[in-house]
């Protein structure tokens, strides 16, 4: 771990003042940052402890919810406002990491967690994300954990979050404060595709602070589900996951949200598949078709080719669960 100055922020303004400095990073639960700092993958010169800031509340907001950036994953997963209104978020959070990590991990940190690409984490392989311009060791490497959607010739790293996949299906908005004021960023725009700059992972500007996330009231939130497929029964990242939210009238689909995890470079929204489902019945055949649409354009590599089919099946399973 590179030496750093440790700063404790007493207020949001205080945080913004210090967090905006060159080489500064906020620290919340620390489960991504401390890990990557110890691996020398992230080397901030100062870290700003934001855990003392009053950003932990989970509050009702006209039938939706407003979740403070420092609310812990556990706190959110068991909060009555969430358990009664947003089952997919509960399932996603509880399928992630371990109870210990969920007690530490915050909503803000989870949004900004970084890929588990082993070449990114090993500190020495060529990696455009860790060392821009150095190349991408994964392209011809071992890619079981890598993405098949949203990849670029420079990076194929998966965004590993479970929570974010549920947030995408639930139309969340990320609220921030930065040197230039407050912003509300739709979740779909919050994470960015790797493109030519895999080192840039979100729309967040340097020094900008996530203050809270809003989940709107919606007709589909109550019928939302998260399905995660992985190599162990618990405590492992998704090989493929799918959050669905459905608004049904009888067996007809009035509105649908489908988001994918474990297979894409950002929490992935399958808009085409959603659109195709509108007005159609909740049959397995229709679900299969939607799943096929969702994976159109996938660009697999030898080790992760199975994910295309696995993701399709996961989508079907998720839709079946949502519809039942």
């Amino acid at each position: 771990m590179q030496p750093f100055a440790f700063v404790h922020a007493d207020s949001v303004d205080d945080a913004l003042a210090t967090g905006g400095r060159d080489g500064a990073r906020y620290i919340a639960g620390g489960t991504t940052l401390v890990d990557l700092m110890r691996l020398e993958v992230m080397r901030p010169r100062s870290i700003v402890d934001i855990t003392g800031l009053p950003l932990t509340a989970i509050e009702d907001m006209r039938g939706g919810v407003r979740i403070g950036a420092l609310a812990t994953n556990t706190g959110v997963a068991y909060h009555p406002l969430i358990t009664t209104r947003f089952p997919a978020l509960v399932e996603a959070l509880l399928s992630g990491a371990s109870p210990q990590l969920r007690n530490m991990a915050t909503v803000g940190g989870n949004l900004l967690q970084r890929t588990r690409c082993p070449y990114f984490r090993d500190g020495v392989s060529p990696c455009n994300k860790r060392a821009p311009g150095s190349g991408c060791a994964a392209l011809d490497g071992y890619t079981r954990s890598h993405a098949v959607l949203g990849t670029s010739g420079r990076c194929i790293a998966t965004h590993p979050s479970d929570m974010c996949v549920a947030l995408v299906a639930l139309d969340a908005t990320v609220h921030t404060r930065g040197p230039s004021g407050v912003r509300a960023i739709p979740i779909g725009d919050f994470h960015t595709l790797p493109g030519d700059h895999p080192e840039i992972e979100s729309a967040l500007l340097p020094g900008e602070l996530v203050t809270h996330v809003e989940l709107p009231a919606s007709a589909f939130a109550a019928r939302s589900r998260y399905t995660k497929v992985r190599d162990r029964a618990s405590f492992s990242f998704a090989l493929a996951s799918c959050a669905v939210a459905l608004d049904l009238r009888g067996t007809a689909i009035r509105d649908a949200r489908i988001a994918l995890g474990g297979i894409a470079t950002k929490p992935w929204r399958a808009r085409e598949a959603e659109r195709w489902l509108l007005g159609r019945a909740t049959t397995t055949d229709n679900f299969r078709r939607a799943a096929a649409i969702a994976l159109e354009g996938a660009s697999p590599r030898p080790d992760n080719a199975f994910k295309v089919e696995l993701a399709r099946r996961t989508i079907v399973r998720a839709l079946q669960r949502g519809a039942s």
Binding site: I27, G29, V34, Q100, L101, N103, M104
Partner: peptide, 10 residues
């Protein structure tokens, strides 16, 4: 919590 990812200073 896991103490390996907890900074003592925090």
């Amino acid at each position: 919590v896991v103490s390996c990812l907890t900074l003592a200073a925090m």
